[in-house]
Structure formats: C-alpha cells, structure tokens
Design a protein around this nucleic acid. Structure first.
Lengths: 121, 121
DNA sequence: CAGTATCCACAAGGATACTG
DNA sequence: CAGTATCCTTGTGGATACTG
C-alpha cells in the first residue's frame, strides 16, 4: 500500500525541510493522527476500542491505517487471545517519539482551529 | 477546493484529539509542510523562489497550495510589483504559530525518518 | 513572472458483504 | 471479534499549454 513519498530515496534527512516532509508524511492520513493521539494517552487499545473512539471509520479503513502504522514501525500489534480473537495496539518507541509533535499539533488546534475557512469559492 | 474535513462542523476543538485532527488537516497536503517550513526561516518568498526551493512542484499545484494556505489564513500574499508581476508570500500569525509543530516534526524526521518501510507487500 | 485552463492518473477513503 | 474482499466515488497531484 502507498509508496509513501521519497523518504527512502535518499531524499530525506539531508535537508531540514525534507525531514519535515518525511515526518509529516507519517501523519498525512485521515486517521493516523487520532490513532496516535489515542494510543498516546491510553497506552494500548484493542481494534474495537479504536473503532469506537474514532467513530465513523470502517473496519477496512481502520485496518489499513493500522497496517500502515505497523509497517512504519509506529504501532505494534499484539495478539491478546485467539478464540475469540483479540488484539491490542500500542505505540512503539518511534511512535511514542511523536508525542511532542502531537502535543504541539493539539495546542495549535485548540487555539487556531476554528477560523479555518477553506476556499471561499 | 477541498472541503477539508469536519473542522468547521462543530466537530473540532471539542475534544483534544479533534484539535489534533484539525491541526493535522492543515498540514495534510504534499507541499504545505515544506512551504510553511521555508517561509518560517526565510520570512518571505516570491512565487518563483518557492517554486525553486520545492523543486518538483508545478505552477498549478504550487498555486493551489498557496491559495489553500491563504484561505486558511496561514499565508499572506502581497503584490510587490505589477509589470513585471511580483508577489511575495509570508506567514500570518496563525502560520507563525505553527513553528513549534514544524520544529517537532523536523526533530522527529531527523531522528526517525529513515527506517520507514511502508507496506512490505 | 505568476499564475489559469484542461485533461488525466492514481491512491485514499467509504459502503457493503463476507470470514477464520 | 478482528479483520478481508469487492466495488465505487472522490480528491489530489501532475503534465502540458496558454495568458495578463
């Protein structure tokens, strides 16, 4: 799924703004930021818990998002029990390192979110 | 252009993670993060300057990105001269307030960018 | 120079139904 | 429960050509 920008093409981390782009790429998905945020303060959550918290997400999309986050080593999947199947998701170290980003994002959101008026037309 | 999420639907800023989502939405565009970053440390840049710095962006896409950022009141457009037309872009207060976000994004990118391995399949 | 106008390709997200 | 499998709609970005 997704080639996810040129981060691995030696294009990243060479310049400061490339680092920014690559990091932003990780959160450039409709559900990733919330998922990380929720895991940040819940520690771990099951698939269903996440689904409930996000509200309008479908199984397919949530599953894809989690797969992607796992592939990026942001999130870790653990099987808690089979029969009935129960899994748990938690942040990896890389994932936890996103905390300051999310914190600042939240701060900005709280202060400046409302006035957004995307395209007058 | 773009309805840009449910931020204005009273959905945002009510909970912490909604604030995060809304803020993330602002940077959820291929070029927005870099543009903001570049303006953050250049102060102001002309259309052509930006185009040069971003490299592979086309006029159309850069133009759209800037329009969107302007509509969101992140960026400010100033006409420097007509004939030949010259404009300058700079961050607004809202835009400058994104600095900590970008800084943390950059920090994370520098430290963790490389190992990303999006989808093994 | 600083854009617009068109057309196009593709990935992302959603709806719905089904399964180990 | 925790996903997969399909199908479908839309948005986003890019190529190219043109303009005040």
């Amino acid at each position: 799924m997704s080639e996810s920008s040129d981060c691995r093409a030696g294009w990243c981390a060479e310049t400061d703004y490339c680092a920014v782009t690559c990091a932003a790429d990780v959160l450039a998905n409709k559900w990733h930021p919330v998922i990380v945020h929720r895991l940040l303060d819940a520690g771990e959550l099951g698939f269903g818990d996440l689904s409930d918290e996000l509200g309008s997400v479908t199984n397919k999309v949530l599953s894809e998002s989690l797969d992607d986050l796992e592939a990026r080593d942001i999130v870790e999947r653990t099987i808690v029990s089979e029969q009935p199947l129960r899994v748990s998701y938690a942040l990896t170290e890389r994932g936890r390192a996103l905390e300051p980003v999310v914190t600042e994002l939240e701060r900005w959101g709280r202060e400046y979110a409302e006035p957004a008026r995307p395209a007058t037309e």
